[in-house]
Design a protein around this nucleic acid. Structure first.
Length: 649
RNA sequence: GCCGGCAUAGCUCAGUGGUAGAGCAGCUGAUUCGUAAUCAGCAGGUCUUCGGUUCAAGUCCGAAUGCCGGCUCCA
């Protein structure tokens, strides 16, 4: 201890009261002196100089301190982290020679990875849960020790925890000298903390899943067994969360895709290959029409290009070097090797290169609904979200360096508008920087990355940097949209490319009469029509907004006395461009309504004797709202207004 | 690709070694009915595929395929 240090330190509580206390007393002891007995008993953690710490943390220097209670910022994370430890403790108690790896809190809960001789079963999970309950009942103190790295190595060696030793090695390489370990009963874990004071705080938890996971997330490393769980401070929140999971299940696009007859996938056709049914097809057509119109409005031109090309093209583009693991094997045509395309860009470049370009032509904005084929490993396929053949709403902008930031700006504007029209107004934006495997000069990477970040900043968009996540040919902006259940989906992407123009010798003649290399920007707003459709289905739970609904209105008769008027209603609505169906079956109205409801048709038009006399229809919405009988013209106007309003956003 | 699970009628599922079942959907008939299911009848399956064990396999074993939950990867 340095000579200048005294045994008394100054502690400021809540930024107000200042107290002199003995150096080294636990924070809990201090809190007990300044808080009511009840309050100090309820505190679970402390914030020392803004940093979350154990409530037993010693106060070693002059500092500011606040008490932290259940439900305060970041406390759920601590609870879940403690839950992970309790689970590991339970597993260690039940299965003697199990090794523990890591166990963090994650977005919706926590997990812990284990190495065990045999796979855990769902029955094991129940046993583990029961043992956790027991540990909770024990209310075992969770204590922290700060020890030297050497000491830690000795302890974990004794415990035979080889994964912990590996972590200690990494910490050693990083130059750490001291680590913290946490103990509860017999269970000891290497951990940064903080943790709750004792195991009794875990009141509401559930183990939710069992899965394999690679050690350190690296597929060359051994596969461990991961047990997932979730925890909350109270049972009510846990129940709400579990209900939300149920709700998400009901919205699963794979289920709705079948129930609503939107699309299918067939074993005999091949996994990851999507068949769009008539109802999915009409939605796709509407999406595409909107997309095309919006692109024409913003000075894009439209291209159509083939799905295969000579292998040499992919050599030139660099895809064989950098993307071959995602490409299908070549096929021979007239003794020349061809390959299915995984991307559309080289074709657009070929069009660019079909003649000499002047700087006056730039920027050139080209788009295509381009179908590509990528080999995705079997285990990664997922409904419409991850497939092997899909159509990108692709586009390439060729521009001069001085035009880049304006172009990015306009692409962002277009992207966010399109997403809003589809009902997505919340998103996370990521700027991905240079990966390990890349082409192009460091200098180009840097200037491209700057252009992207500047465009984001001038539009006042907040974003996160995703280091090393760029594509091999350039940095990118990814937009992950958030759906109504708060889940995020990667769809839009904007990628600057300094590389392909070089490889294909893309040039324009500048003002100076000399050739220059343009910058190429790849962009997809929806990402792929397949994935976007999947996201849309889940976002709306299959109840598509009126402008997208495959059937917008269904005419329902009460008896066959109304067939004639109902028939002419149907005809007139169709003539007015409203996607209309008729259900004149000899069934009860209640049944027809039920079926239309299950089909999530926005408007049911009831036609009974009264409507025939008045020459009206009585609309009922799929939300169960009964509108007053109205004339056909009024109904048509209502539909048109509702559809039009979507675009004013 | 890896770890684990699953595969029975269009859908949801029952059937754990002894002759394949239900509900819904479908079809036929009756019923003419006002805001989420009218009644009756009929039809529908080489139990994913291939191989093995057994007197006997939907059921037990092995493999393949596909799907599901994750990991990794990603639009």
């Amino acid at each position: 201890m340095a000579e200048t240090e005294t045994d008394v330190i100054t502690v400021t509580f809540n930024g107000e009261n200042t107290e002199q206390v003995k150096r080294g007393i636990p924070a809990s002891e201090f809190l007990a002196s300044v808080l009511s007995r009840k309050r100090s008993k309820n505190a679970i953690l402390v914030r020392i100089d803004g940093e979350l710490k154990d409530i037993s943390a010693p106060l070693t220097h002059d500092c500011g301190i606040e008490a932290v209670f259940p439900g305060d910022d970041n406390t759920l994370e601590v609870l879940r982290h403690t839950a992970a430890h309790i689970m590991a403790q339970a597993v260690k108690e039940l299965f003697t020679d199990v090794q523990v790896a890591i166990g963090p809190a994650i977005e919706n809960g926590f997990y812990y990875d284990f190495d065990y001789q045999r796979p855990f079963t769902p029955e094991d999970l129940k046993k583990i849960e029961a043992r956790m309950e027991e540990i909770v009942k024990r209310s075992q103190d969770i204590t922290r020790e700060d020890i030297s790295l050497d000491e830690a190595e000795k302890r974990f060696e004794k415990l035979g925890e080889k994964y912990k030793l590996e972590i200690l090695n990494v910490l050693d390489d990083q130059g750490e000298e001291e680590v913290s370990i946490y103990s509860q009963g017999e269970f000891v874990d290497l951990c940064r903390g903080p943790h709750l004071p004792h195991t009794g705080y875990l009141k509401a938890f559930k183990l939710t899943g069992l899965a394999g996971a690679y050690w350190r997330g690296d597929e060359t490393q051994p596969m461990l067994q991961r047990i997932y769980g979730t925890a909350f401070f109270d049972k009510k929140s846990l129940k709400e969360y579990l209900n939300r999971l149920e709700e998400a299940k009901k919205r699963d696009h794979r289920r709705l895709g079948r129930d609503l007859d939107l699309f299918s996938v067939h074993e005999e056709i091949g996994p990851g290959l999507i068949l769009w049914h008539p109802k999915g097809g009409i939605i796709r057509k509407i999406i595409e029409d909107f997309w095309r119109n919006e692109h024409f409005r913003r000075d894009y031109d439209m291209l159509f290009t083939p799905h295969i090309a000579r292998r040499d093209l992919w050599k030139t583009s660099g895809h064989l070097d950098f993307y071959s693991e995602n490409m299908y094997l070549p096929m021979d045509i007239d003794e020349v090797s061809y390959q299915l395309r995984p991307m559309n860009c080289p074709f657009h470049i070929a069009i660019y290169n079909s003649r000499i370009r002047s700087y006056r032509e730039l920027p050139m904005r080209w788009c295509e609904l381009g179908t590509v084929y990528r080999y995705e490993r079997t285990g990664t396929l997922h409904g419409l979200m991850r497939v092997r053949g899909f159509t990108q709403d692709d586009g390439h902008v060729f521009c001069r360096p001085d035009q880049l930031s304006k172009e990015i700006h306009e692409i962002l504007d277009l992207t966010l508008y399109v997403l809003r029209v589809f009902g997505f107004d919340r998103y996370e934006i990521y700027l991905s920087t240079r990966p390990d495997k890349y082409v192009g000069s460091d200098e180009n990477w840097e200037s491209a990355t700057d252009a992207l970040s500047q465009s984001l900043e001038t539009q006042g968009l907040t974003y996160e940097i995703d280091p090393g996540e760029g594509v091999f040919y350039g940095p990118k902006i990814d937009i992950k949209i958030k759906d109504c259940l708060d889940r995020s989906w990667q769809c839009s992407t904007i990628q600057v490319d300094f590389n392909l123009p070089e490889r294909f010798d893309v040039r324009y003649i500048g003002e100076d009469g000399q050739p220059h290399t343009p910058i190429m920007v790849h962009r997809a707003l929806l990402g792929s029509l397949e994935r976007f459709f999947g996201v849309l289905i889940e976002h709306y739970a299959g109840a598509f907004p009126l402008w997208l609904a495959p059937v917008q209105a269904i005419v329902l008769t009460v008896t066959d006395r109304q067939d004639q008027w109902a028939g002419s209603v149907t005809k007139k609505l169709k003539a007015a461009g409203i996607r209309t169906k008729a259900d004149f079956r000899n069934e009860k109205l209640g049944k027809k309504i039920r079926e239309a409801q299950l089909d999530k048709i926005p408007y049911m038009l009831i036609v009974g004797d009264q409507e025939v006399i008045d020459m009206t229809v009585s609309p009922r919405t799929r939300k169960g709202q009964k509108l007053n009988a109205m004339s056909l013209d009024d109904f048509i106007a209502l539909v048109e207004r509702e559809c039009r309003d979507v675009f004013n956003c």
